[in-house]
Simulated assay, not measured.
Amino acid sequence: MMHKSARFITLFCAALLGGCSDSDSKATGTPTTTDDTSTSTSTSTSESTTLGPTSSGTTGSTTVDDPTSSVTDGEASMCDPWQQDCPDGYKCMAFAPEGEPAFTGNKCTPVVENPGKVGDPCKVEDGWWSGVDDCDYGLACWNINHADNTGQCVALCTGNEDAYDCPGSADICVFWIPGIAHVCLQGCDPLLQDCPTGQGCLPDWASNGQRFVCLAEYSFEEGQEFDPCQFSNVCDPGLLCWGSESALECDQDISACCLSFCDISDPQCTGQGAECVSFYEGVGGEPPPAFADVGICVIPG
Rank of each mutant, 00 (worst) to 15 (best):
M1K: 14
F8R: 12
C13H: 09
C13V: 13
G19N: 02
G29P: 03
D35L: 15
T41L: 13
S42E: 06
S42K: 06
S42V: 06
T43M: 02
T45P: 07
P53F: 04
P53S: 10
G57P: 04
S61Q: 10
S61R: 10
V64I: 04
D65E: 15
D66H: 14
S69A: 14
G74M: 05
P81A: 09
W82F: 09
Q84W: 00
Y90W: 05
Y90V: 00
K91R: 14
K91E: 02
E100P: 04
P101M: 03
F103K: 01
N106A: 10
N106V: 10
K107E: 01
T109M: 10
V112N: 03
N114Q: 14
V118W: 08
D120I: 10
D120F: 04
P121Y: 10
E125T: 01
G131C: 01
V132W: 02
D133N: 08
Y137L: 14
N145S: 13
T158H: 07
Y164R: 08
G168F: 06
F175N: 07
P178Y: 04
V183P: 03
C184Q: 09
L185H: 02
C188I: 10
D189T: 14
D194V: 12
D194K: 09
G200W: 08
G200T: 13
P203W: 05
S207C: 07
V213S: 07
V213F: 06
A216N: 08
E217D: 08
E221I: 15
D227I: 11
P228D: 14
N233I: 11
G243K: 03
G243F: 11
E249K: 07
E249S: 11
C258N: 05
I264M: 15
P267I: 14
Q268M: 15
G271V: 10
G273R: 13
F279M: 08
V283E: 12
E286C: 12
P288Y: 03
P289C: 02
A290V: 15
I296M: 11
C297G: 01
